[in-house]
Every structure is written in structure tokens, then in C-alpha cells.
Amino acid sequence: MTNILLTGSSRGIGAAIAATLDRPGIALVGHGTRSGIPADFADPAAPRALWDAALDRLGGTLDVLINNAGVFDANPIERTDAEWVAEWERTMRINLTASAELCRLAVLHWQARGVGGRIVNIASRAAYRGDSPAHWHYAASKAGMVAMTKSIARGYARDGILAFAVCPGFTMTGMAEDYLSSRGGDALLADIPLGRVAAPEEVADVARFLALEAPASMTGAVLDVNGASYVR
């Protein structure tokens, strides 16, 4: 049995990942406001509480951590100093710091047990290409997630602890639909050579492969799912 903790499992990419992992031999614990274990990552105590609750449900062992939870809220520079900094810090805590805390707990868990494990972090194309003028914080949080993933891969490969990241571009979730319409829709699609945004199931298939099947020598890999809108 492979025990998996998936954050942000209630909707969009997270729900698609949960669906593709709904198969024999997998015990999945999800996190989210609509399903799974509730935890507000804006609260510094939430990651540890989620971790402990997930371990309790999974009988004390975890094999795979998938960090998918995140926010994408605009933060225009015209806001007051206090408003802008508050939104920056909220986004960093939810998108990056909470994921880092869970990664740390996972690494310590596997080291204590003397076994390997896998981390899959859902980052973003924005980590490499940047994002809109109102989303500095989002891009920075996802770039941090990529750097963290590579650091974990390099630091703990000898322990059998593998780390991967996925960098989607626009994905047809409710959040992406709203953003596409607010940014001109067709004009934004013109920047994607494939001619469409990704389906959540496409990102989920990559996450499932990394969580269950990717060879160990792939550790540290960052896989793009963006319709060739950003290539590197």
C-alpha cells in the first residue's frame, strides 16, 4: 500500500490528481476546504496539524507528499504599504512556507524510519517566466518552490528521498477561467502555441507519474505542462 498526502485536493488540479490516484494499492488523504482534512495554511500551526492528522489516518506512515495547495490573488503595487506587504506575506506562507514545512516533516519522517519517499511540488510556469505586474508574489513563491525542490533532491537522494516539481501554465480550472477572461481571453491564448490551456487531468497525469513511477534518477526534475508557452 502506498500512503499519500495531497494538499489542495478539493478542486482544480488537486481534484484531478486525487481522481487519478483513486486506484487499488493507494491510500490517499486529501486536504481542502471542500473535502479531506481542513487546514488553513494562512495559519502557521496548520501544516503541522495537517501532517499529524494525515499520519493518524494513514496508520503512522507516509510514502508520498504532493504539495498542490496555493492561492493566486492579485496584489497591485498601488495598494498601501501595509496592504501590499500583508498580501505578499500571506501568499508566501500559503504557497511556499506551508509546503516547506510539510516537506521538512516528510524528510524527517523518512529519515527516522530509514526508508525513502517522494515529494511532488506543483509549482508554476511563473517560476521561470514571471507573471503579471499584480502577481510578483505568486511568481516569487513558485520560484521558491522550484529551488526548494532541487535542494531537497540534491540533499537527500542518498537516503532514497526523491523530489520533483511540475510547472503548469494556464490550466482550465475556475481560477484560470476567471484570469483568462480578465486578461483578454483570445489574446492570451495566442501566446500558447498549442492553442489552448492545459486540462487539469494533463497536469494530474504528470503528478501521478512522478509520485508513483518516475525512475529515481529523475529526482530534481522540473516538468513543464504549458503548451510550449514557455520553453527552457
Rank of each mutant, 00 (worst) to 15 (best):
L6Y: 02
T7H: 08
T7G: 09
T7S: 12
G8C: 11
S9Y: 03
R11G: 01
R11D: 11
A16Q: 01
I17C: 03
A18T: 08
I26D: 00
L28P: 02
L28R: 00
V29R: 00
H31A: 04
T33V: 13
T33E: 14
D43W: 03
P47A: 12
R48D: 13
A49H: 04
A49M: 09
L50E: 00
D52E: 15
D52P: 04
A54Q: 00
G60W: 06
T61A: 15
L62S: 05
L62W: 04
V64L: 10
A69C: 12
V85H: 13
W88V: 08
R93M: 03
T97Y: 08
V107R: 07
A112F: 11
G116K: 10
G117I: 01
R118S: 05
I119L: 14
R125M: 14
R125C: 09
Y128I: 06
Y128A: 14
D131H: 02
S132C: 09
A134R: 09
H135T: 07
H137W: 02
Y138E: 02
Y138C: 02
S141H: 04
A143M: 06
V146T: 10
S151R: 13
I152W: 04
A153H: 07
A153D: 02
Y156V: 05
A157Y: 11
I161E: 00
I161M: 01
L162E: 05
T171E: 00
T171F: 02
T173M: 09
T173C: 08
A176I: 06
Y179M: 14
S182T: 14
A187K: 14
L188I: 14
A190Q: 15
I192C: 10
P193S: 11
G195V: 13
R196K: 13
A198C: 12
P200W: 05
V203W: 00
R208N: 02
L210Y: 05
A214C: 09
P215K: 08
S217P: 02
M218H: 11
G220S: 10
V222C: 08
N226T: 05
N226S: 06
A228P: 03
R232V: 13
